[in-house]
């Protein structure tokens, strides 16, 4: 059932993946969070070269706990962080660097869905909180960049062996797992509302003026 992907990969390989597929990834992945995404995109926009190569590679939304052992580094704990923060910047990197795999948790917005479809890439969801499990799949810290941003925000170059299980959350054909789940959820919610005597046309909330949590907001 599950599929193996070796990095660097290719458009041809990732185009075959479909939403819901289980994937295990081996090879080099680059971690990147908020500050790293910002720095990378700004460098590219200035026409500078990144110090690492993302072409046909993978970005992992992850800020690992890393320990210094003698002259090298050891990953103690590593798991995904919430990906929706990187929708715009991540899409930029997919387009400009041909990043094939973007790994994180939660989901990513429309810009990313579009970028993955146009360029040929996938968004993979790791199980949140599983840092001990995933850390055991990191076999080596190859390098680290931008440590001035702090340990979590630095870009760690990690050699992984069968990183997974990862679930294809957005494929390269415009499909997202979120939309499939939400379609079912919307039906369930209307029966919950009628059972609980909730009028869905009313907001019930006086302040903020726009209710922050509204199922309408879930639409990509």
């Amino acid at each position: 059932m599950s599929q193996e992907i070796r990095l660097p990969t290719s458009e041809e390989v990732v185009r075959k993946l479909r939403v819901g597929d289980i994937v295990y990834v081996s090879g080099i992945v680059h971690t990147m969070r908020d500050m790293g995404h910002r720095r990378a995109v700004e460098m590219i926009k200035r026409g500078e070269e990144l110090p690492f190569n993302l072409e046909n590679g993978a970005i992992w939304h992850c800020g690992p706990i890393v320990r210094r052992v003698d002259n090298s580094w050891e990953v103690v704990a590593a798991g995904p962080t919430s990906s929706s923060r990187f929708t715009e910047l991540g899409a930029e990197l997919v387009r400009r660097q041909r990043v094939r795999l973007t790994i994180g948790k939660g989901t990513m917005g429309k810009s990313m869905v579009d970028a993955l479809r146009e360029v040929g890439g996938v968004y993979l969801i790791a199980t949140g909180g599983c840092a001990a499990l995933y850390a055991k799949q990191v076999v080596k810290v190859e390098n680290v960049y931008w440590l001035d941003l702090g340990m979590p925000e630095a870009t760690w170059v990690l050699r992984v062996e069968r990183l997974g299980p990862l679930v294809v959350g957005i494929d390269s054909h415009g499909n997202s797992l979120e939309q499939i789940v939400l379609e079912k959820v919307r039906q369930n919610v209307s029966s919950i509302y009628s059972r609980e005597k909730i009028d869905s046309s009313r907001s019930y909330v006086w302040w903020p003026k726009k209710i922050p949590g509204s199922i309408e907001a879930c639409k990509i």
């Binding site: 919430s82 929706s84 948790k105 939660g106 989901t107 969801i125 949140g128 979120e178 939400l182 959820v185 919610v189 919950i192 209710i211 922050p212 949590g213 509204s214 199922i215 907001a217 879930c218």
Partner: peptide, 11 residues
């Protein structure tokens, strides 16, 4: 609570 939880999704 239902709406906020659904908006938060997996995060």
């Amino acid at each position: 609570v239902v709406d906020n939880t659904l908006t938060a999704m997996g995060e």
